[in-house]
Computed example of a mutant assay.
Amino acid sequence: MRRYGLSDGQCERIKDLLPGREGHVGGTAADNRLFIEAVLYRYRAGIPWRDLPARFGDWKSVHRRLRRWCEGGVIERIFRHLAADHDNEYMMIDSTIVRAHQHSAGARKKGGADQATGRSRGGLTSKIHAIVDTAGKAAALSLTPGQRADITEAEPLLDEVDPEVFIADKAYDADPLIEKLEERGITPVIPSKKNRRNPRKILFSLYKKRNIIERFFARLKQFRGIATRYHKLKSTFLAAVQFVSAIIGVN
């Protein structure tokens, strides 16, 4: 296997989800695996598109094809299809900050569209929010400006999953979220904030498993094109996060 390439097992899991596969509507692409490996290489190494090794072909063609997949929702469908095969025993939520490179600034805000970049103490940043399952596999993802509070994405992401137990840190200790979890029959494992009058009791043996999502973010940020945001458009960067999350979640 080439450096940063797909394993045969990973390729087998995703090949039937890709456009251009044999029997799919339209032309048949002979290089789906090569294209996926080109995109994976770019995000793993964090290089500009024009520095893509020659073995992957014309970098402009690779970039153009990736944009078509992003705009057509191909990457999101791949992620959601693979994410649907998750373990519902318990899940956990958290977020991580990524620095936005200066090249990611300046996108046109069509119709006031938010490109999920904002100013915080760390400068220009974006925040990746994720819910992962017991195996550390991403089940739901979203992207916001870096200064956005973690709790704002909890309910929208929770609508995409149905765990038996939901684990989070104190940043998610809010009555509306706790009530929603209890209404759905989901056990919250969220430590109480210091200012809560009647602290809830939680199972710390379960809470300790929150390290699983920390390890997920560590794996995600091994991809330098994710650890630093270079994309101007929110849709493109979110697709990049979905793409990498899908790949590292496939055995």
Score class of each variant (00 low, 15 high):
residue 1 M to K: 10
residue 6 L to H: 05
residue 12 E to F: 15
residue 13 R to G: 00
residue 15 K to D: 04
residue 15 K to A: 08
residue 18 L to T: 04
residue 20 G to T: 06
residue 24 H to Q: 03
residue 25 V to E: 06
residue 26 G to W: 13
residue 27 G to H: 07
residue 28 T to K: 06
residue 33 R to G: 07
residue 33 R to L: 12
residue 35 F to V: 08
residue 36 I to M: 14
residue 40 L to N: 12
residue 40 L to Q: 10
residue 44 R to K: 15
residue 44 R to Y: 08
residue 48 P to Y: 06
residue 50 R to Y: 03
residue 51 D to N: 09
residue 54 A to E: 11
residue 55 R to P: 00
residue 57 G to T: 13
residue 68 R to S: 13
residue 75 I to C: 00
residue 75 I to A: 04
residue 75 I to R: 02
residue 83 A to T: 13
residue 84 A to S: 15
residue 87 D to N: 15
residue 92 M to P: 00
residue 93 I to K: 03
residue 95 S to K: 12
residue 98 V to S: 08
residue 99 R to Y: 00
residue 99 R to I: 10
residue 100 A to I: 07
residue 100 A to Y: 07
residue 106 G to R: 13
residue 107 A to L: 15
residue 109 K to N: 11
residue 110 K to C: 03
residue 111 G to P: 10
residue 114 D to L: 11
residue 115 Q to T: 04
residue 121 R to P: 12
residue 125 T to D: 04
residue 126 S to R: 06
residue 127 K to R: 10
residue 127 K to C: 11
residue 131 I to Y: 00
residue 133 D to R: 05
residue 136 G to M: 08
residue 138 A to T: 02
residue 145 P to T: 14
residue 148 R to N: 05
residue 149 A to E: 05
residue 150 D to P: 15
residue 151 I to T: 10
residue 152 T to Y: 02
residue 152 T to K: 14
residue 153 E to P: 03
residue 155 E to R: 14
residue 156 P to Y: 07
residue 160 E to S: 07
residue 164 E to D: 12
residue 165 V to M: 02
residue 166 F to H: 11
residue 167 I to W: 05
residue 167 I to L: 12
residue 169 D to I: 04
residue 169 D to E: 09
residue 171 A to T: 04
residue 174 A to W: 04
residue 174 A to D: 05
residue 175 D to L: 09
residue 179 E to G: 03
residue 180 K to W: 04
residue 180 K to N: 01
residue 180 K to G: 08
residue 183 E to F: 02
residue 186 I to N: 03
residue 187 T to K: 11
residue 188 P to E: 07
residue 188 P to V: 06
residue 190 I to A: 03
residue 191 P to F: 11
residue 193 K to I: 10
residue 194 K to I: 14
residue 194 K to H: 05
residue 195 N to P: 00
residue 196 R to T: 12
residue 198 N to M: 03
residue 201 K to W: 00
residue 201 K to Y: 01
residue 202 I to N: 13
residue 203 L to C: 05
residue 204 F to V: 04
residue 205 S to V: 04
residue 205 S to Y: 11
residue 210 R to L: 06
residue 213 I to H: 11
residue 213 I to E: 02
residue 213 I to K: 01
residue 218 A to Y: 08
residue 222 Q to T: 07
residue 224 R to I: 11
residue 228 T to C: 11
residue 228 T to K: 15
residue 229 R to L: 15
residue 232 K to M: 12
residue 233 L to Q: 15
residue 234 K to S: 08
residue 235 S to D: 09
residue 244 V to L: 01
residue 245 S to D: 06
residue 247 I to K: 06
residue 249 G to P: 02
residue 249 G to H: 01
